[in-house]
């Protein structure tokens, strides 16, 4: 064992020198300290507003929302005003502003399926539009509504995929 440990240290040092050395020389080398978001998906339990009722559709966590986001069958609905939506939304989300529901509904309805999983969100904890919209859609017969109450704030803070149209203009 006496001779084993120093040689193990030698092997580790050699690997470090070679690995970091080659990376430093390679034109497409990676930074030594990568830019990784903290891999904790917000709280473990979903944010549920005080005004929620027993009969409301299920509330989901950021982690669950992200899991559904990766499923192409899921539709995300943004319940905020068009102005907020244009300032940035979850990639792929359709704007259905609750305050202008009837104006937008004819365009949105054909894109929804009553059996599909639909995630409704708005700006975050201080916004109840997602709750009202989710509740309303559930009453209309959409069977798999999920309310992501953490909403835009939680999603964007985590650095998950978003579209910010105003930036592109």
């Amino acid at each position: 064992m006496k001779k084993v440990l120093p040689a193990m240290i030698f092997l580790l040092v050699a690997s470090t020198v070679i690995g970091l050395g080659i990376n430093a020389v390679k034109p497409d080398g990676i930074p030594l300290i990568g830019d990784y978001r903290e891999v904790q998906y917000g709280a473990d339990s979903a944010i549920v507003p005080p005004s929620a009722e027993e009969s409301d559709p299920p509330f989901i966590t950021l982690k669950e929302a992200y899991g559904l986001y990766n499923d192409p069958e899921t539709v995300f609905l943004d319940a905020r005003d068009p102005e907020d939506y244009r300032a940035g939304y979850i990639t792929g989300a359709i704007n259905l502003p609750f305050d202008w529901f009837d104006d937008y509904w004819p365009d949105v309805e054909p894109r929804l399926n009553k059996d599909a999983v639909i995630v409704v969100y708005c700006s975050g904890a201080e916004c109840e539009l997602s709750l009202y919209e989710g509740r309303y859609l559930a009453e209309e017969g959409y069977k798999n509504i999920r309310i992501f109450f953490g909403g835009w704030t939680e999603w964007a803070e985590q650095g998950f995929p978003t579209v910010v149209p105003d930036d592109n203009m």
Partner: peptide, 21 residues
């Protein structure tokens, strides 16, 4: 996150050196 890249750069070479040895 801070040590992921260093780990990813060194580990394959340690595997390679030990394997060759």
């Amino acid at each position: 996150g801070g040590i992921i890249n260093i780990f990813a750069l060194v580990l394959p070479w340690l595997e390679l050196l030990c394997g060759l040895a």
